[in-house]
């Protein structure tokens, strides 16, 4: 029993950055844009959030800066892809390479500085429940926010007209354009949203999970988030499930040695990556299913005819 509490806490903390990034990317992809730059946006959110908290000591400012950092990166991507008609795959790759380089540059003087971590918000009454209170109701604001976002995005996509329009643009940009919807503007907003969410995911890493700045600290989480979107068949509830599943794999990694399993740490570190591959294989092996769920215009360039 005494193992379970910390284990659940680890799952939640490991899942939260993935949840943010994957939810954001899902909304971007729902609009028909594949942004492979999640890793780059995340890490920029991580470093700039850390810098902000270091200089202002304000969590609010830090989180806003992270959102802006992710969105600014996303805006760069959006500009290239939507205005300059650049191909989405290489542009996303460039964004990742850029983010990793720029964050290392900015973060040079931040290495080795410690931060206390985001304050925990204990929900009144609920947090005093034995066991459950500790595990579920004493988290920082980002954990709660990530869970709220699952519902907000579900509601937005399925219950609002704006969400319907977003899905329509992702299904057929030509049809949406023919009906007079501003495809480029809608996509740009979706890209910005994805960037902001990735920025928050990054902020969680540098402000709560670690909490400190290390070069390349996202360690492929942006890419895992991309895989999670596929795993989730572009559904918010399943993104939640997927993120917590990966959080679960992370606890294996952290607690295996504590449990006295004689597996080298490198092998345990491989687990999330290998799990991503396995999950992709399982979910992709039915191409019909992917085609029905994936936004039909995903990754296709949009050239309004004349």
């Amino acid at each position: 029993m005494e193992m379970i509490g910390p284990a659940l806490l680890t799952i939640i903390t490991a899942a939260t950055p993935l949840l943010f990034a994957a939810l954001g990317e899902m909304v971007t992809e729902k609009s028909g844009v594949l942004n492979l730059g999640v890793e780059g946006m995340m890490i920029m959110g991580a470093i700039l959030g850390f810098v902000a908290v270091h200089f202002t000591d304000s969590v609010t400012v830090a989180l806003l800066v992270s959102i802006l950092a992710g969105s600014a990166m996303a805006a760069l991507f959006g500009l290239l892809v939507l205005k300059f008609h650049a191909s989405q795959v290489p542009t996303g790759l460039a964004l990742t390479i850029f983010g990793i380089g720029l964050s290392a540059l900015i973060g040079q003087s931040m290495v080795g500085i410690a931060y206390d971590g985001l304050p925990k918000l204990s929900l009144p009454v609920l947090s005093s429940l034995p066991f459950i209170g500790d595990v579920f109701f004493r988290h920082d604001i980002l954990v709660y926010l990530s869970l709220i976002m699952v519902f907000v995005i579900y509601y937005f996509l399925n219950k609002t007209r704006a969400g319907l329009i977003l899905r329509a643009v992702g299904d057929s940009h030509d049809a949406a354009h023919a009906m007079g919807y501003p495809v480029v503007k809608i996509r740009f907003l979706a890209i910005l949203f994805g960037g902001g969410m990735a920025g928050l995911g990054g902020a969680y890493l540098s402000l709560a999970y670690s909490p400190l700045w290390v070069e390349q600290m996202t360690a492929g989480r942006g890419w895992i988030a991309l895989a999670l979107v596929v795993f989730a068949s572009w559904r918010p509830g399943r993104v939640l499930l997927g993120a917590y599943l990966f959080g679960g794999i992370t606890i294996l990694q952290l607690h295996a040695q504590a449990l006295g399993i004689g597996v080298p740490s490198q092998v345990m570190s491989m687990l999330p990556y290998l799990a991503t591959i396995i999950v992709l294989v399982i979910i992709s092996s039915d191409p019909g299913k992917i085609r029905l769920n994936a936004p039909a215009s995903l990754g296709r360039p949009f050239h309004p005819s004349r």
């Binding site: 360690a219 492929g220 596929v230 294989v281 992709s284």
Partner: peptide, 30 residues
């Protein structure tokens, strides 16, 4: 994995990069 299971090669090849670096690390430690 791409041909048989239709798994996106961008993600699998990248994941395998992380695995490869860890594997090299394991080998030079062992």
């Amino acid at each position: 994995l791409r041909v048989k299971f239709n798994a996106n090669e961008i993600l699998t090849s990248l994941m395998l990069s992380y695995v490869a670096v860890l594997f090299l690390n394991l080998m030079v430690h062992g």
